[in-house]
Amino acid sequence: MLKKLLPLVEHAVKKPVWDCRMCGQCVLHSTGMTCPMTCPKTLRNGPCGGVRENGNCEVIPEMQCIWVKAYDRTVSLPLPKVWKEHYNELRPPVDMQLQGTSSWINLVTKRDQQVPAGWSVGKH
């Protein structure tokens, strides 16, 4: 019941505010409260090289690049320090199995922290 209800509630709350795409593994806190899934290339780790001189998107020229927005907000919003520090983390690939599920449930159950067995972060 909760599994069916919560995604609806979450979407109702997050869609109008952040244009939430229900990826089920929310990283808003680490991206200056800006949803990376609204980037036309759904980039999770920063802007591509096509950002225009005025800071707008390569794909949608009339829209500000969401990573320009995310960076400005991370610098200027009064967010917790630990959230700001998360900005530069290497975020793993999106788990497509979580699409449409509630990131709130996945946060509580830590399902959103599961990564492929081979995924590790670090240098050679």
Binding site: G46, P47, G55, C65, N88, L90, V121
Partner: peptide, 17 residues
Amino acid sequence: APPFDYRIQRALKKHRA
């Protein structure tokens, strides 16, 4: 390309990766 200040950090992130 914008965000100018961030490009160095992004390069370093790729290096860490």
